[in-house]
Design a protein around this nucleic acid. Sequence first.
DNA 1: GCATTAACCACCG
DNA 2: CGGTGGTTAATGC
Length: 221
Amino acid sequence: MSLDALLARSPWAAALTPAQRERVRAELRERAVPQGAYVIRKGDRADSWLGVADGLVKVHCASPSGKRATLTGVPAGGWLGEGSLIKREALRYDVVALRDSRIACMPGATFRWLQETSLPFNRYLLDQLNERLGLFIATVEHERLHGIEGRVARALATLFNPVLCPGLGPALHLTQEEVGLLAGMSRQRANAALKVLEGEGLLAVEHGAVHVLDLEALRRY
DNA sequence: GCATTAACCACCG
DNA sequence: CGGTGGTTAATGC
């Protein structure tokens, strides 16, 4: 989608004054990131807030030994990176494009200007951070208590989260390969897990797409 | 045992 | 035809 369309479906942008929105639009920059490439890398200085205009990205961190832990996935329409911007810290994670993606970059100065001038923007940030916190708590809980199916259920519930990615319908173009990458498992195992979840009526799988039928149940799986 | 990798083939667009 | 999905066999922790 275009940058205008991305802003149009972003609730924080709708809450700005026309003048604020105009400045934000003027200062947004666009980056094309090919599949497999890094959007940003762990250790980079955070200088922009990132919106996914097209594609799908994954946030993960890697240990020195090469082990990886997927933190979350963000589909087109979502925004990320506010945590590091607010803390003025280096990034603590990598962001990788799972498929060819286009990223909208809001300069850090613009982001801070919005923080200082817009109460609704701050409220939005609080909601987004709170939602992420809830998801990560659920992740730790599920990681310990449930099996592979729980990881897939949670990865999908995160993608389809209506607060983090509003305006996303119940269906999303998503291959089983990508589900595996998001949930941190092989395609074959993701495939088997999807079939279990489908059998329980929580979702429906199609060629290259997943339909979520019961988001609440996926969250609590 | 369970998951991953690799390899195949079938199917869909 | 290329991308995606379903399956299996070999391999590794």
